[in-house]
Amino acid sequence: MKYLARTLDGKPLLGDDEGYVPLSAAAPELESVSDALPRAAAGTLPDLDDVPAERTDPEHIQFAPPLAKFGKLWGIGLNYEEHAGDLDEQRPEEPASFMKPASALTGPGGPIKLPPVEQTDGVTAEAELAVIMGRQCRNVAERDADDVIAGYLPVIDMTAEDILQRNPRFLTRAKSFDSFIVVGPAIAVPEDEDSLALEELTVQTIVNGEVAAENEIRNMLFPPREIVSFHSNVMTLEPGDLFSTGTPGAEPLEPGDYVEASVESIGSVEAPVVR
């Protein structure tokens, strides 16, 4: 697995399981992580063993969001049948997608800022696997989705459930408060399309050190590649677009809580909860 990331002061990085080097040392022609997304989708990122730079342990790096600017932020609701049942919702026959504004996004470490109780007093956290697009595309077949996906990262998604329960048409507002999506520190880029068995991975929502919900990606109603293909038939997808693919379960939050989204083999992201 390779990784694309940025330091807190915006320097792009390329990494592997042994550490990170400056992206410029590995590929001088790439000035940003965004520039590297097409090569990630193509599977042509440099091999770090060939880079004349010493790796830095990620524990010694302060990470910003991996992209200075993301594209479209998509979310997929009710994508695990068990979670839909918990919410007394029927299984959707097509992806139940929605969009979030760029202002809702914050980087690893958060914090997650709960809105005033007068607006909502029922915010939940949901761990999810996110897909990052690497190439502009339209009408992509599911079998070809790996050719346009740059990689994956963990995210924490939030919902003001009390607002949503008042009326399902309030979904956009319930999902759009500042800090209501926390992205992981690095985009995980598989070495090749066969090196990552997505369906075997587990997604966990962890609050205060306790696993609140977990499920395997194989139990998604609409797996990541199908989500990409479906939405590419609706609109042009572009490098940096993000699909947050749904949660195995949501957990209510209170100020002082600590939330983690863990996606096996991909990574994790953590954030404290404040008001």
Rank of each mutant, 00 (worst) to 15 (best):
G122C: 00
G122M: 00
V131Q: 04
T124F: 02
Y152H: 09
D144T: 08
R135A: 14
E126T: 05
N139T: 01
I156F: 09
E126K: 03
R143D: 15
R143P: 00
V140P: 10
D121I: 00
D157V: 02
R138P: 00
M158Q: 15
D157F: 00
V131D: 04
V123M: 10
E126C: 02
Q136K: 15
V140L: 09
M133C: 09
I156M: 12
V148H: 14
P154R: 12
A145L: 13
D146Q: 10
Q136I: 02
L153E: 03
L153G: 03
E128K: 04
V155Y: 06
A127V: 06
E128I: 06
T120Y: 03
G134Y: 09
V140W: 04
Q136Y: 03
A150M: 06
R135I: 03
A145G: 14
V131F: 06
V123G: 02
D146P: 01
V155T: 14
R143A: 14
I156C: 09
A150N: 09
C137W: 01
Q119M: 13
D146H: 15
P154L: 06
P154V: 08
T159E: 12
D157I: 00
P154Y: 10
A141Y: 07
A125S: 14
T124Q: 11
A145Y: 11
A141F: 10
A130L: 00
E126I: 05
R135Q: 15
M133K: 01
A130C: 15
